[in-house]
Design a protein around this nucleic acid. Sequence first.
DNA 1: CTGAAAGCGCTTACAG
DNA 2: CTGAAAGCGCTTACAG
Lengths: 341, 341
Amino acid sequence: MASNAPTLKMVAEAAGVHLSTVSRVLDPARRHLVSEAVAQRIEDAARAIGYQRDMAAAALRTRRSRLVGVLVPDIANPVFAPIIAGITGELFDAGYSTIVADVGKDGARQPQLIADLLSRRADGLILATALLDDPAARGAHRSGTPVVLVNRATDGEPVPAVTSDERRGMGLVIDHLAGLGHKRIAHLAGPQIISTGAQRRAGFDAAMRRSNLTPDPLIMVEAGAYDIASGRAAAEKLLASGQRFTAIATANDLLAIGAIQALGARNLICPRDISVTGFNDMPLIDMIEPPLTTVRIAGQEMGRAAAAMLLQRIQAPGSVVEHRLLAPELVVRRSTAPAST
Amino acid sequence: MASNAPTLKMVAEAAGVHLSTVSRVLDPARRHLVSEAVAQRIEDAARAIGYQRDMAAAALRTRRSRLVGVLVPDIANPVFAPIIAGITGELFDAGYSTIVADVGKDGARQPQLIADLLSRRADGLILATALLDDPAARGAHRSGTPVVLVNRATDGEPVPAVTSDERRGMGLVIDHLAGLGHKRIAHLAGPQIISTGAQRRAGFDAAMRRSNLTPDPLIMVEAGAYDIASGRAAAEKLLASGQRFTAIATANDLLAIGAIQALGARNLICPRDISVTGFNDMPLIDMIEPPLTTVRIAGQEMGRAAAAMLLQRIQAPGSVVEHRLLAPELVVRRSTAPAST
DNA sequence: CTGAAAGCGCTTACAG
DNA sequence: CTGAAAGCGCTTACAG
């Protein structure tokens, strides 16, 4: 274990050289500075005694840790799983380690987690936790720490980000529903303090107008959170309003499940009476009844792209801030049908 | 950012003391060694210039990093999400950071990841990746590194572990099915090189005998992996065998979905013709058609318990090896019904 | 109660 | 091409 781990000095003694020479040989970028014969001898010795470079010490000396911190709102939420997988995969390939931390639903742990990550000399941060107005994200970015937002962006002062193109995603939904003859389309929106909620709603408005339909404020409701209970509650409000509509475009798969439950409670059947769409294409959402028409976001790619962007910013800290948008994809299943008349 | 971060020395200068005194004051355990007046002055100075302890340097000096590595077979698998959440939550509360790493489906990255974690002076490892025979887990444990297995255990030489009580879980399933009058119960087993697969199968045999039923090798199949496709393929083999059975007890929810699909392909309906049970109670499994009767494992608790056990082993490295078993719970839904006659 | 010094394991100018 | 030395930012015996 660590307490008796071989050090550079031990390798040096075994090979009969100075430890600085060992350090050179073991760094691919500087190995050529040493004669081949000596280098060979050192490599043999290092292998023989099982030398492993101490990253903690190297980080202290070089001020680079090859460590990246990832903050997520809820590590148990399946939506983030492919994103995290993409991030860790890309970073691993680049020789980086990833610390994934869960800030808790209310984000309470975020400040301490950021401080902790920085005190471990993390080379950069990826935040999946951003609110539209997010002082922590802005602050970290401003202070010069390489930061990239993923899945959710901020508005106002730009911070580097990789997200799905939410407006386009909702546009695909509306085009699909309009194509099925739906005219009165309700929107079950996500929390408007998060970019996904706000952008999907904006995409809803824009796409409705593009289709010459009117986004009617009377059939728009906002869910308090992205979960089934909130979706059901919001959909019940919609149904209780007495307004007429033939489809509900929701901002999230779980909200869609809640909406379908609310319909069922009133003996309305999806899609026969009312079509419902989701967003995200989460695992198993194709297995529910009815299988959900939804928008697939490229989670793993998003994670990879965010990691790549961060790596690039670690190399060139001051470089221009970009917001990369990934194209989503409509997945038509059986929760949508021609408008009932 | 990190390059101009305040150091102990800067705080010392600001407060007009030696940096060793600052170090004492900022460590709660040694603060009492310094006079209150000086301590106050130092704390004020530290706050004023925004001092943050450099964990990398502290780790180098103390040989403790307050960092724990967690290895999972597939970070995108929803089964692991609550386990990871439990682990990170418990460790955060204890002042530890967690590195979560995905070893990839074939485990190819595991050796390098373990080496990397150790080179960052991780204080311990939690492995959710263990095979029944797992040289890496055994090796790490033997070398004196604090290690705890979670969800999956090894056999042979004992390594500390926290898992669900698989035999008991499958026992609950069989008792339930037997209570519904099923006598010919097929087993769709998980991979037998993983403890979950092996133990659930062992639990199946034991519980069948306890109920005076015969576990029939002719209606037992092993899935190649825990996924829908493997479940479907295995169930098709079962159906093609011509053997008679009225229920299939599977080792995993995804396998159960595959089994239900295989039934559907032969125009058999679950549960009318054949009852099917799952295992894990993964997210949304209650929403599929039919909602699945399954065994709920206490994922988050399991994670917390594994973290607590690791913390304890970090304090007392040589302490006795235990394998903690958490009680699972049967969740009856609509995929099981009285045996058709 | 406080300071001065050594040293954790590395990397990297600087000599030779 | 190789060695000797300084120093990253801390903690911790050892003095006084």
